[in-house]
Nucleic acid binder design. Structure first.
Length: 293
DNA sequence: AAACTCAGCAACCGCACAGTC
DNA sequence: TGACTGTGCGGTTGCTGAGTT
């Protein structure tokens, strides 16, 4: 049957809003409120779609909107809520006063998703990636001192620690029907605590210089067991074999967890400020086609 | 200095759902 | 009860500015 367009699209303007349009919309809503978005632009004298007006108001012009970068606490909350709610941005935004769903969605897609990936956490599942029966292959031997190797070993160690510390996990009082958020587990562990205490000032930015430059190597990720399902949460993340490995590490043996040192803490401490993920380029490029759509 | 790349963000689009008649 | 309408939501696109080559 098809539905009528939300408004008459003829002569409607699209694209970025001008300050004049903003002012008209603000003034109109201040005087009349926004009872009916469909007719609002006509009444206000705007050549805009009602939807466009609503979006502009909700995401930008609303007086209670909090501008500026997200605080670490807010980012943590977004991750936590995403673990519980998934991509329900509006629900997540409802827990962050002054933040819009669009803003949170952008933050997630541009920053947090990559950050979780680096830590070996699946951004959609909030579980460790390739944690069981996984092999990491790198195309350059130098990667053994690089960030990718650090990320991987740190991730595995953190996971091993957490899995061993069952009392800690149970103390988090995770609802039984809720999957544990491994990022949160790591965040709330001693490792994460050290990370949280790390000052975010400019003085720490020198940390990133050495680490980023180390990571030009590409990493191929593979699974010991072929994906059998087709669901996005499982098979879509299934890694694949690739040619030309220079070294190979099999983390399937838990004994290897014991031998690693405080690499988890090291990885977190060296995590690039300003979300610089350039060192992950190879990894992300390999993983990207596998990500659930 | 110009070209290129990329991250961040604003905005659009289509679908889903709830309310109304 | 079903058609219609308005609104909300999530995915996606495209622009812009900063950084890099």
């Amino acid at each position: 049957m098809g539905r009528a367009p939300c408004c008459d699209r003829r002569n409607l303007k699209k694209g970025p809003w001008t300050p004049d349009e903003d002012e008209i919309l603000i003034n109109f809503i201040a005087k009349n409120g926004h009872g009916n978005w469909r007719y609002l632009p006509k009444l206000a004298g705007l050549r805009r779609c009602g939807k466009s007006c609503r979006l502009r108001w909700a995401n930008y012009l609303r007086p209670d909107i909090k501008r500026g970068p997200f605080t670490p606490d807010e980012e943590q909350l977004v991750i936590q809520l995403h673990g519980m709610l998934g991509n329900r941005w509006a629900a997540i935004a409802a827990q962050l006063p002054g933040r819009t769903d669009n803003e949170i969605k952008n933050l997630w897609n541009s920053c947090l998703k990559k950050r979780l990936l680096c830590m070996g956490i699946g951004p959609s599942t909030h579980k460790p990636l390739f944690f069981q029966g996984t092999k990491i292959r790198a195309s350059s031997a130098s990667v053994t001192t690089g960030h990718v190797a650090q990320c991987e070993s740190a991730r595995l160690e953190a996971g091993a620690r957490l899995s061993k510390d069952s009392s800690f996990v149970s103390s988090l009082q995770i609802p039984q029907r809720m999957e544990p958020d491994y990022f949160l587990l790591m965040w709330n562990s001693e490792v994460g605590e050290s990370f949280r205490k790390l000052p975010r000032g400019a003085g720490n930015e020198t940390v990133t210089d050495s680490t980023i430059s180390q990571a030009s190597s590409s990493v191929k990720i593979e699974s010991n067991s072929p994906a059998t399902g087709t669901g996005p949460a499982t098979s879509a993340w299934a890694p694949r074999w690739s040619d030309g490995p220079k070294f190979e590490t099999d983390y399937s043996s838990s004994s290897e967890f014991e031998s690693s040192s405080d690499t988890a803490l090291q990885m977190l401490l060296e995590f690039p400020i300003n979300n610089d993920m350039s060192f992950l380029e190879g990894t992300i490029m390999d993983i990207a086609p596998l990500l659930p759509s």
